Amino acid sequence: MVSGVRNLQNPGRLVPAAKPLTDRVAPLIQKNVHSRFPTDAETLVRANAATQLIGGLMLATGKFTRPAALILAGTLVPATAAGHPFWNNDDPAARNNNQVHFLKNLGLFGGLLLAAADTEGKPGMRWRAGHRIGHSRRSVQRAVRTARREAKIAVRSAATARRIPG
């Protein structure tokens, strides 16, 4: 959230690093999202920062945690690729620094994916659906057994009624 606020207030410091990535993504955004959506590097940095801030607030407050974690993981990918391209550094110190931050963000990405998959101890939709299907199947089987039993009882009663002279 802190970096989201910082980057929202001052996106200019990230624009040079983000520009190579935003230049490649801008045509895709214009083609698929909306032609009037601004695609300059500064606007995209601000949009990413705002998304990180909102997603961080949602995750911190426990509201919509799974979608928030997934969205934050999605914002981390371009931020990491643009901000810490250690493979482009010739200086060993800068390369090492960017590699450390890249790996840190990779760990955060994994944690966010785990948070997105976490059901907080509640059964997931797949388990619920399977459990409900199994429950329904058992209910139908019980109903069939009961109907057979009652039919046998009715047949016996009818046979007994015919034998007794009236």
Rank of each mutant, 00 (worst) to 15 (best):
G62W: 01
A49W: 01
F64K: 07
A79G: 13
W127M: 11
D91V: 01
N97Y: 04
A18C: 05
G56M: 00
P85D: 11
P20A: 03
K19M: 10
A129F: 15
R95I: 03
Q9T: 11
G121A: 05
N97T: 09
L106H: 02
A117Y: 06
R142F: 08
I133N: 12
R149L: 12
V45G: 07
H131S: 15
G74F: 00
H131R: 13
S157N: 13
R46L: 05
I29R: 06
S136Q: 15
N105Y: 01
F64A: 11
V140Y: 02
E120H: 13
I71Q: 09
S3D: 11
R149A: 15
K104W: 07
V140P: 12
D118H: 03
Q9H: 11
D23Y: 06
T65F: 05
T80R: 06
G124S: 09
H135P: 15
Q99F: 08
P20T: 02
S139C: 09
S139F: 08
G111C: 03
R137Y: 11
V15H: 00
K19Q: 14
A47Y: 01
P78Q: 05
G83K: 06
P85V: 00
E120W: 07
D91G: 06
K152H: 14
Q9M: 13
L114P: 05
K104Q: 08
A93K: 09
T80A: 07
R13I: 08
G12I: 04
R163D: 14
R137S: 13
R128D: 14
T146L: 14
G56E: 06
V140C: 05
A49V: 00
L70H: 03
G124A: 12
G12H: 02
A158W: 07
